[in-house]
């Protein structure tokens, strides 16, 4: 690994370290609460809380490395959640007791897979830009959520499910395990498989990939199905515990996911990015939210600060990637 690469991939972890030190020190000085920020329980909770957006952001990394974007993940998340909770009240499901749980999960995950496949097929077959396609499906899928149950929340509390969601295996919460396993799986996919490497090639230089005989469309389809599945998985993890979904849940999730991916250093134009760095981006954002809360800032300030940091990061990235003085001015 070259020095430049090390800086790029290490930057997000250095940023996390800076955040930890900053909030610990500021917390002591301002002494808003008596609790220490770097508390172990607090950190475990942080990982758990970053899981819903984190799982989506990991999927978004693949989509963006591939040179696409998916704005419909928030709506997919909501619709999968509705299917998950509503399916418990279907007559045949009620009859089979706790066996309904894996079946409900299956329905929810299948929903995500299908919604993702629709996106992927449209992008593949029409050639329309993924931004436009998923902007449309974002609105469309959200519409389906409202058609399902109107403005009413969909609720179902299954105590077995709640127990499972609140389980702590080896100290880590169920949601955290899902986040870490997803990260591991996607990391293997992106670094070890032909599909993953071709995704990088397509995002990096699409024409070169086409010239080399790589079929771009199927790769798009697979990746969109994957992110649909992951959005549904995120819903499964989150709503197994909460048991109630509002039709507006998951709004803006796509933007939070993209923010985490970009903070992690993935190029918006595609071809460069890593799953591990996105995980760093996810943790960095959650730290920022929690940390600012810890020192007494309100939610509005949190969003402002995250926005500013995002722009700063992109500016620094641009400076790093400049081609020197010979570059054509624009």
């Amino acid at each position: 690994m070259t020095k430049e690469n090390l800086i790029k991939q290490g930057a997000i972890w250095a940023f996390i370290a800076v955040e930890l030190i900053f909030f610990t020190v500021m917390g002591d000085i301002l002494s808003v609460t008596s609790k220490s920020f770097m508390d172990f329980e607090n950190m475990l909770l942080l990982l758990k809380q970053s899981a819903p957006i984190g799982i989506i952001a990991l999927g978004m990394t693949i989509i963006m490395v591939n040179g696409n974007i998916d704005l419909s993940v928030g709506a997919t998340f909501a619709l999968s959640a509705v299917v998950l909770l509503d399916s418990f009240s279907w007559p045949f499901m009620a009859a089979i007791g706790d066996w309904a749980i894996p079946l409900a999960w299956f329905f929810a995950l299948a929903t995500g897979l299908i919604l993702g496949a629709i996106n992927g097929l449209i992008v593949w077959k029409t050639g329309v830009d993924a931004f436009i396609v998923t902007l449309g499906s974002m609105l469309g899928y959200r519409g389906l959520v409202f058609m399902y149950n109107g403005e009413q929340p969909t609720s179902h509390l299954n105590w077995t499910l709640v127990d499972f969601a609140e389980l702590q295996f080896l100290g880590l919460h169920t949601a955290t395990w899902f986040l870490l396993l997803t990260a591991l799986g996607l990391w293997l996919l992106m670094t070890r498989t032909v599909h993953g490497r071709n995704a990088y090639a397509i995002g990096n230089n699409r024409e070169a990939a086409v010239n080399a005989g790589i079929r771009v469309g199927p790769h798009f389809l697979i990746n969109f199905m994957l992110i649909g599945f992951l959005a549904a998985l995120s819903a499964v993890v989150f709503y197994s515990e909460s048991g109630s979904v509002n039709p507006n849940d998951g709004t803006l999730y796509e933007l939070w996911a993209i923010t985490a991916v970009v903070l992690g250093g993935t190029k918006l134009t595609g071809g460069y990015g890593s799953i591990v760095s996105t995980l760093g981006g996810v943790i960095a954002i959650q730290l920022l939210r929690k940390g600012l809360g810890h020192i007494g800032a309100d939610t509005e300030t949190v969003n402002l600060v995250i926005g500013l940091i995002l722009i700063t990061v992109l500016f620094l990235d641009r400076q790093l990637n400049r081609q020197g003085k010979e570059e054509l001015k624009t």
Binding site: R197, Y200, A201, N204, N205, A209, N211, A212, G271
Partner: peptide, 8 residues
């Protein structure tokens, strides 16, 4: 024209 993916 070079037809390469430069990140790979």
């Amino acid at each position: 024209e070079l037809s390469l993916a430069d990140e790979l």
